[in-house]
């Protein structure tokens, strides 16, 4: 073998060896390195968030306790309480409701696993606009989580036609803890 042939053989061998090493060693190692790096970065980012969550746990528990105090029904039951509170509030607003009815209850969002329960009430009354406003304002000040879900104001008809009173139908929803959660 002449020196030139030997040189060409060596160069060819080096190129082939380089290609083989690059393809079967360097590339897989690089790929594994990158994947490992990505896993590490993802884990670090996730853990950073989770460490933050753990640090917030105490504050969250405290806040949840505040909400629980508002949402936990009284010993006699929230329905009983509201059925007695709502007439008092309407009386304070200057009218007496024709009816205050408890319509029913359902888990929030109809999700049986929801930690909350919604209690629905229906109030029918004939009121002036001012009385209605006062009553609604008073509702927002009640400590219990109670809000108006539907409101219908109908003009007086029949023998009441022409009177300044409005026929009002109110649908109220109260939020409380779901003690039958998951059952």
């Amino acid at each position: 073998m002449s020196p030139r042939e030997r040189q060409l053989g060596l160069i060819t061998g080096a190129v082939v060896a380089l290609a083989l090493v690059g393809n079967y060693v360097a590339a897989p190692v690089w790929q594994a390195w990158r994947e490992q790096g990505e896993t590490l970065r993802d884990l670090e980012a996730t853990l950073e968030g989770e460490r933050g969550m753990r640090e917030r746990l105490r504050a969250l528990a405290k806040e949840r306790e505040v909400w629980a105090a508002q949402l936990t029904p009284p010993p006699g039951g929230l329905v009983q309480e509201l059925v007695s509170v709502l007439p008092e509030e309407s009386k304070a607003a200057g009218f007496s409701p024709e009816s205050v009815d408890f319509v029913g209850s359902s888990p929030l969002g109809n999700d049986p696993d929801s930690p909350y329960l919604e209690l629905r009430f229906q109030i029918d009354a004939k009121v002036t606009l001012a009385q209605l406003q006062t009553f609604l304002q008073r509702l927002t000040r009640i400590e219990r989580q109670l809000r108006v879900d539907r409101l219908a104001v109908i003009p007086p008809t029949g023998k009441d036609a022409g009177k300044p009173a409005l026929e009002v139908q109110l649908s109220l929803v109260a939020l409380t803890t779901n003690e039958r959660r998951g059952s």
Binding site: M53, R54, R56, L60, A61, E63, R64, W67, L108, P115
Partner: peptide, 10 residues
């Protein structure tokens, strides 16, 4: 913490 946060958010 996630459960509490979700309950408070709702």
């Amino acid at each position: 913490a996630k459960t509490l946060a979700a309950e408070i958010r709702v």
